[in-house]
Design a protein around this nucleic acid. Structure first.
Lengths: 250, 250
DNA sequence: CGTGTGTTTGATGAATTTCAAAGCAGGTGG
DNA sequence: CCACCTGCTTTGAAATTCATCAAACACACG
């Protein structure tokens, strides 16, 4: 609760050094001492670049770090034994990768960069050690994990109950909202993923995605040329997804 | 690492007092002192009965406790704003409920007892406090949360990539394996949920579930009468679900 | 022994996949 | 600078899967 001057300075320095990192955002609301902030700082000092198309990690790799996306865009996917791919998420600036690895100490999915990207590795054992001394950090890690569960349940609702048009509308709204939260336009943005990746994420074929895009275009809800998205009618788009759950992540 | 006699005794007493609680199982592998075990004991001393059809908690209720299922069977579900229901999971003896509430301090789903059941409430704030002093407890809580994420990703693969027959086969195998792990027969068990609940879980209609059951019956893979299941050909059933992911939870 | 809830099966129709072919864009090398 | 190539996208037509509607059935419970 006590927010002395020097501490705030530290926090801002820190924020500048790793803008929009999830971990940081989660730590900001709580009172940390200068020393604590410095310890946290050592955790996330590094940067790693990942080229477009390259894997940050693959299923089965041993867990070393969680990753906060600093720049760029990732997709995560699981593979079935017979080769079918399910995209489980897209991660943008300020979002976290690797949480599913904690369960077995091995990553349970593939994380692929969709464009040239940059991440902050957060060595997990250090994070756990630090979290022992910083209860608020631990609490926020718990929250982060729990949020991921809620997000996944929303996706289950999507795949289990919504038709193709509703899924695509929900997907676009979700992207729009997340971009907005990070200071980007919520009405005008670029898709970083292929139709096929969107389809896999939404449990549909790429051709179906194309057709649904055509529908949204015909209804003048979005202007979608290639990967450039302009949302023309946000309320109209929302209305297409009444099916979508608590206003949490949509 | 040091497992002195008295400590083991404590652990066994504890285990008897709350057989098959997830939390406990997660704590067993690690070295706890007698005092620590006692503190843990105070957390999970209570029992709460939940009648068939009753809600353990509902979406929006403030998070007080996580719950370990001691006896019985639950389903969790989320509701879309326009009333569509998605079952997000079935929880049996020894499994945990409420993890999704950590993210907002409010439960994000409804937990309904499918038969007369009994749970151990684990007051969350106490758990977090205790976890500060017991790093291994904290680690295991992290793992528990991460496991749930992995499970959800497997479900996404199911809903996104598998046809109706494969989904049902996967569902039965999953139940079979979880029952087996808890000492019950993996070949002969009773479904605690309706066809409709199975359908909602698998993203299908109840009629489709009925038809898929008929298919499995025709192929002599299972003998399924009403809610009584006898698995006749486990390898054959497995083969139906090649699509299913890492052998983790299936 | 009726009543209600849950299950099964059939017939029909709608939504999505599959297969196929053409169009478009960006990048490379002649 | 243009031609070509490759990968991604779009659109059409046919096939398939699943949902919907409807009716009969089974079972448990009061």
């Amino acid at each position: 609760m006590s927010d002395s001057e020097p501490q705030l300075l530290h926090l801002h320095t820190l924020k500048a050094s790793c803008a929009s990192c999830s971990v940081l955002e989660l730590c900001l609301p709580i009172g940390l001492t200068g020393v604590e902030v410095e310890r946290l700082d050592t955790l996330i000092a590094q940067r790693v670049k990942v080229k477009k198309g390259a894997a940050l990690y693959r299923t089965g790799d041993p867990l070393r770090s969680l990753y906060a996306v600093r720049l760029g865009f990732f997709k995560t996917s699981v593979l079935s034994v017979d080769g079918r791919e399910q995209v489980t998420g897209f991660q943008m600036q300020g979002e976290m990768l690797g949480l599913d690895a904690i369960s077995t100490d091995h990553y349970a999915c593939n994380a692929i960069a969709l464009e040239d990207s940059e991440v902050c590795p957060i060595p997990f054992s250090n994070l756990e050690k630090l979290a022992r001394d910083l209860p608020s950090l631990q609490h926020n890690l718990n929250k982060l994990l729990s949020q991921e569960i809620v997000r996944d349940h929303d996706m289950l609702l999507m795949l289990g109950n919504m038709n193709a048009d509703e899924r695509l509308a929900g997907f676009l709204l979700n992207l729009s909202q997340r971009l907005n939260r990070r200071g980007y336009s919520s009405r005008d943005f670029v898709l970083r993923m292929s139709r096929e990746a969107i389809g896999s994420y939404l449990g549909l074929r790429l051709e179906t995605i194309c057709r649904c895009i055509a529908h949204l275009r015909e209804e003048n809800l979005v202007d979608l040329q290639g990967r450039n998205v302009k949302i023309l009618d946000l309320p109209g788009l929302r209305q297409k997804v009444t099916g979508c759950h608590r206003h949490t992540e949509l």
